Amino acid sequence: MSGTLKHDTETNITLIGTGTIGLSFAAFHLTHLASPSQLTIYDTRSDAAQYVQENLPKFFKDQDQSSSPSFSDVKIASSLHEAVENASIIQESGPENASFKLNLWAEVEKYAPKDTLLWSSTSGIPASQQICKMQDTSRVLVVHPYNPPHIMPLLELVPSPETSEDVIKRTQEFWRARGRVPIHIKKESTGFVANRLAFALLREAVHLVDQGVVSVEELDQIVQTSMGPRWAVAGPFKSYHAGGGPAGLEGFFKNIGGTVQDCWANAGTPNVGDGWEKKIFWEAKEAYGTVDVAERDKITRRLLQVLEEEKKITGNA
């Protein structure tokens, strides 16, 4: 199985699932479709067409109407067969349920073209658990976004041991042509990479608040005014490599490796259900109520724009 996907050729994309991630991907694909490409959406909910018509435009409410895509061009399929039969790419963002995905791909395989790319947006179900009922187990690739995918550049490409190199290569080419950052994750790992890092920080945050060291709001302020901005510019390895001066990362560990080890050895080990939830959930609700995600997305988009502008100026784009 081989083929190419280029930004200026016909690429028919089918999205399965109209939840938060599915609609966010729909918003992204709508702004990157080149005529005569087609965006098709399929969902088993009875009001799928109305739901998409009401909610998809919300992703563009801050844009000029002249630059907004035409939502009438989105096709709502009435059956899975209809949705996938002419697709170049099929991207599922359905329930986080292994049985659902297992059965879905077996059905998709019956109707989709043989060279169609099959992507799962799962947050934690590896491709190797999704392909067991398929005839060709080399086709499915996890393409895990960082929420919200219409704004965030990262896509974690997580193959099963049986996923073909051609599928990985074509997927990388597709996303790179659209200005995204597809990272090939070499081995299946619980939670992949981005969430493992984020949840490690979350676990320590829960521990520190639960132990009365800081409040929920204070901890967030610490992150927002320290490693948050720093990590937007450089990840942990580059940051601490810089922190070591001329000796780099080795110098950093030589200088304060003992403190690092003390923190690792003394890291918190709270588990979900241990009893910390009531206190921390209450503090979060008191501090933030219902978070304005539109404001979050607007600021995030602007931050990414500034970073991209600076990279072009410094020649690091």
Rank of each mutant, 00 (worst) to 15 (best):
S72M: 05
I125F: 10
A98K: 13
T122M: 06
M134R: 08
L102F: 05
K114C: 06
P113H: 03
S70Y: 12
A127E: 03
A106L: 04
V74N: 01
Q130C: 08
L118H: 09
N97E: 09
I125C: 10
V74R: 02
S68E: 09
E96D: 11
S70P: 03
S78Q: 14
W105V: 07
W105T: 05
G124R: 06
Q65G: 12
S121A: 08
W119E: 01
I89H: 02
E92N: 14
K110A: 10
S70K: 15
S68H: 00
S121Q: 10
D64C: 10
I90V: 15
A77R: 03
Q135Y: 01
S93C: 15
N97Y: 04
E96A: 14
Q129D: 13
C132W: 00
K110D: 00
W119H: 06
A87L: 07
K114I: 11
T122W: 01
N86V: 06
N86S: 15
D115Q: 14
L118V: 05
N97W: 02
S72N: 12
E107P: 01
Q65S: 13
S88C: 09
S123W: 07
L117C: 01
L104P: 07
E96W: 14
W105H: 04
L80Q: 12
I125M: 12
S68L: 05
E107A: 08
F71H: 07
L118F: 09
I76A: 08
V84I: 07
A106V: 05
Q91N: 13
L117V: 06
K101D: 01
D73A: 14
E96G: 11
F71P: 03
S128H: 08
T122F: 00
S68R: 15
D64E: 15
N97Q: 12
E85I: 12
Y111Q: 08
W105L: 10
C132E: 15
L117Y: 01
V74E: 02
L80V: 10
S123N: 04
S79G: 05
H81L: 13
Q91M: 15
S120M: 06
K114A: 13
E96I: 13
S88D: 14
D115C: 05
E107F: 06
P113R: 10
S72C: 03
S123I: 07
S79H: 11
G94Q: 06
S120F: 04
L104Q: 11
N97A: 02
Q135M: 08
L117P: 02
I125Q: 03
L80K: 11
Q130V: 03
Q91R: 00
S99D: 14
A77V: 03
S93L: 11
A112Y: 02
Q91D: 02
Q135W: 01
S79R: 08
Q135A: 11
K133H: 10
P95N: 11
P126N: 12
P95I: 14
P113C: 07
S128E: 09
I89T: 08
L80G: 09
S128I: 06
T116N: 01
K101I: 08
K110L: 13
A98V: 14
E85C: 14
L118T: 00
S66D: 09
H81E: 15
I89C: 00
E85F: 07
S88N: 15
P95F: 04
W105F: 15
S70C: 10
W119A: 03
